[in-house]
Design a protein around this nucleic acid. Structure first.
Lengths: 120, 120
DNA sequence: GCAGCTACCTAGGTATACTAAGTAGCTGCG
DNA sequence: CGCAGCTACTTAGTATACCTAGGTAGCTGC
């Protein structure tokens, strides 16, 4: 699939996926990137730092996630551990509900299109 | 749901939905807008001309749809009837296949997130 | 000494959708 | 007759999200 389409499809849902990963356990940017690539690289393409870190700052600005700084074992530097705020939990649940309605809606357009190969 | 999220989720899939509508039957911009709103307004929000027409021109530039001009009965003006090209059919099938893989992938992130309310 | 790993940061570019306006002719109501 | 409302297409400007391509910095192992 043309990478242009892949990129566009991701908009919005990438933010939701990050919230899902943070909801699962307290985690940090680098781990999020590796998990994203372990699970989704075949379909989403490789997630890069320049994509993920800005999303984390955005989510933090919106008070959906909160941040705790801890020393990094591996490199003498630091890690920023993120976890969901209460607002973030609420928003994530709303996003998931919307995503489900949304996919049903899009699928209804697909189902009605006349191409015979589309039938499952 | 916050309209900001709605807008982002639409990116990419709106183009696919328009291709679906054109695949179903030869149609024109205004009809596409009304059909989009009949079926999807509750979830997608109202589609406006400023959204739909530019997409049609983009699809035509990419040679995914082709255009036939006919007089409009209602207003003495004209209508631009669109239909899928062969390339458009091929691309639409690829897009639909990708969309299905993509939703499976996103759902797998949702399924693993720890919020108990998420379970179907 | 250098490659490769962990870990974070940012400026600039591109693509998509929305806002808000405009053009133009027809129909129907009072 | 005037005007609202419908059909039907057009476009300039704005906002936002994601990607590219770099950068900083310390550790480990060859």
């Amino acid at each position: 699939m043309d990478s242009k389409y892949v990129q566009q499809f991701k908009k919005g849902s990438l933010e939701m996926m990050l919230l899902c990963l943070v909801a699962r356990k307290e985690t940090y940017g680098y781990e999020i990137i590796t998990e994203l690539n372990d699970k989704g690289a075949a379909i989403l393409g490789y997630a890069k730092e320049g994509t993920v870190y800005p999303i984390l700052y955005r989510l933090q600005d919106a008070e959906l996630i909160k941040c705790r700084i801890a020393p990094a074992v591996a490199n003498g530097g630091f890690k920023k551990y993120y976890s969901l705020t209460e607002k973030g939990q609420k928003t994530l649940l709303e996003l998931i509900a919307f995503w489900r309605d949304y996919t049903v809606c899009v699928n209804s357009f697909i189902d009605e299109c006349a191409l015979p190969e589309v039938a499952i």
